[in-house]
Amino acid sequence: MSDSQSDAEYFQEVVAEIELEARQRAATGEYPRALLRSLDEEFRRWIPDASLESGIEDTIRSIEAASYVDAAVPLKSRSPVGSFTKWVVRRLTYFYHRHIAQQITALGIHITRPLRLIDASLKNINRRLSLVEDQLDVGAAARSELIASVSHIAASEGIKEILLEHFRGVPGRVLFGDLFEPSLLDFLRNQGVDIYGVTPNDEASAAVDIQQTELIEHLDHLDSNALDGFVLCGITDRSSLNEQLRALRLLLLRSRAGARAAIIVAKPELLSSRLGPVAADLLQGRPLHSETWCYLLSRENASDITVVESSDSAFSLITATLP
């Protein structure tokens, strides 16, 4: 083994130790949880969107600045005679250069004028779109309050063991999203499953290997064939039908052949009874029946599709192997 190979292996071991140590410290609460997220959140809050905010404005300003031509030619030269000659030529031809420069500057301004009109039109369209969105989505605030008030149903021990069996021996990464119960993820990880979580939830995202983001947004940025398995839950209880189907489609696209799939979904009847009439009417999403998930998976040619109901009949676990 060469020195560089041995160094590379040693450094990889060190990185693995650092990762493990960081994970353990985070799990024991040694690291302040809020600290781990605050700067990331802050960065996202500050990040501008050049295309929507002042980007076009700045670009036009840059073009205008660049189109200003300085008629005073530099006089720097290797020899004093050269500098003097340049100065004489500049003095003699200044009227000519100034005339040309003024025309070029005028041309630049004429070019940027239509760009300014386009910029103004885009801003106007954005303003109108925002108004339309507000008018269409009158119940957004009420719905988000309702979603926050819906308590998640905890997974039982029986389900944990079935999940573990399903993912035992999976070689690559398994995604758990959108996560509502970090303990289930910790259990699988402690049993040797290479699993990470994705959740928009502040509380649940405190552990090291849990990313705080929307599941669909995360999947949009993930490479194809990045996953060897996934556990889909949370989003299956409260999101719209379109969002649930989109999440499943993206998960299938991001999974390798032979990947293991698991879907945890609350029983629709139970959730309706818990929600009450107001939430049931106003919420856009509600859980699909386990039969529907089986149908969707079989349509994708998944095999070994099984459904297990929790002992308290609160939710169903659907497992399958992808083609």
């Binding site: 501008p48 050049a50 980007g55 076009i56 700045d58």
Partner: peptide
């Protein structure tokens, strides 16, 4: 792209 329209 988000930071500098001209550079983008």
């Amino acid at each position: 792209g988000r930071w500098d329209g001209l550079l983008a």
